[in-house]
Simulated scan of single mutants.
Amino acid sequence: MLTDIFFLFLKASLWALGGGFVFMGLIEIEIKKKSWDSLCDVNSLITIATSLPGPIITNLSFLIGKNLAGMVGGLTAVVGAVLPPFIIIYLLAPFLLDQGSSQAFVSSFFYGGLVGVMVFVFLTAYRWIRGAYNFGIVSFASFALMTILMLAGIHPLIALLVGFSMNMFLKGNTENE
């Protein structure tokens, strides 16, 4: 199981040039494909990982790996998740330090990565929106309101409080009828 954990996080990390949000979506899909979702609650671990200080990728890798195979599984998952960016940076460093003709190559690499990241972020957002819609129109409306408030520059905690309050108030009223 340790090799499966290592290669799962290695593969997800290779695709997750966009950082934590892309990584979360990929890991969630892969855990469901492997039917490991009965062994760990990925959504709860994502919530915990995003609230901890530090990079989301290493936090989430450790938490999922630890749930699947103990402390050794957690460390194996972190190594699998950290190895691809380390190797990529190690290989790209000479190109980045040489400001000559290789700069076009490096720029092209990052533009290609940007397109992939946008696709994965869109797919993750789509799954979250669809999940909110499946909980009902009230949950979807509170999710949309929170998103709009955060995009308008309102502090995320205030937006969450408004969305949560709206969800609780309107859900409570519709369940009583």
Results as ranks from 00 to 15, higher is better:
1 M>L: 07
1 M>Q: 13
1 M>R: 15
2 L>Y: 15
3 T>I: 11
4 D>H: 12
6 F>G: 05
8 L>V: 12
8 L>S: 14
9 F>W: 09
11 K>C: 02
11 K>P: 11
15 W>F: 15
17 L>P: 03
17 L>R: 05
20 G>E: 00
21 F>W: 06
21 F>S: 06
22 V>G: 00
22 V>S: 01
23 F>C: 00
25 G>M: 08
28 E>C: 04
31 I>D: 02
36 W>I: 05
37 D>T: 14
37 D>S: 12
39 L>F: 14
40 C>Q: 11
41 D>M: 11
41 D>N: 15
41 D>E: 15
44 S>E: 10
45 L>A: 01
47 T>C: 07
48 I>A: 03
48 I>K: 05
51 S>M: 13
51 S>C: 11
53 P>W: 03
57 I>Q: 05
57 I>F: 00
59 N>D: 02
60 L>M: 01
62 F>A: 01
62 F>T: 03
62 F>L: 04
62 F>M: 03
63 L>G: 00
68 L>C: 00
69 A>N: 14
69 A>Q: 14
71 M>Q: 14
73 G>I: 08
74 G>T: 08
74 G>C: 06
75 L>P: 13
76 T>Y: 04
77 A>S: 04
81 A>I: 05
81 A>N: 05
82 V>N: 01
84 P>H: 07
86 F>N: 03
87 I>G: 01
89 I>W: 05
89 I>R: 12
91 L>F: 12
93 A>C: 13
94 P>N: 02
96 L>R: 00
97 L>H: 13
97 L>W: 10
98 D>C: 02
99 Q>A: 01
99 Q>S: 05
100 G>M: 03
101 S>H: 12
101 S>L: 11
102 S>F: 10
102 S>R: 15
103 Q>N: 10
109 F>Y: 10
110 F>C: 02
110 F>P: 09
112 G>L: 13
113 G>D: 14
114 L>A: 11
114 L>T: 12
118 M>Q: 09
119 V>D: 09
120 F>E: 03
120 F>A: 01
121 V>Y: 07
121 V>F: 06
122 F>Q: 07
123 L>N: 11
125 A>L: 07
125 A>P: 06
125 A>T: 13
126 Y>H: 14
127 R>G: 00
128 W>R: 10
130 R>G: 03
131 G>V: 04
131 G>E: 12
132 A>T: 07
133 Y>M: 04
133 Y>N: 02
136 G>K: 13
136 G>C: 03
138 V>F: 12
138 V>D: 02
140 F>I: 03
141 A>E: 02
143 F>S: 06
144 A>K: 08
145 L>Q: 04
147 T>E: 06
148 I>E: 00
151 L>G: 00
151 L>D: 03
153 G>W: 13
154 I>F: 12
156 P>N: 09
158 I>K: 12
158 I>H: 10
158 I>N: 09
160 L>H: 05
160 L>F: 10
161 L>A: 13
162 V>G: 00
162 V>K: 08
168 M>Y: 09
169 F>N: 04
170 L>K: 05
171 K>Q: 13
171 K>T: 15
171 K>D: 09
172 G>E: 06
172 G>L: 08
176 N>Y: 08
176 N>S: 06
177 E>M: 08
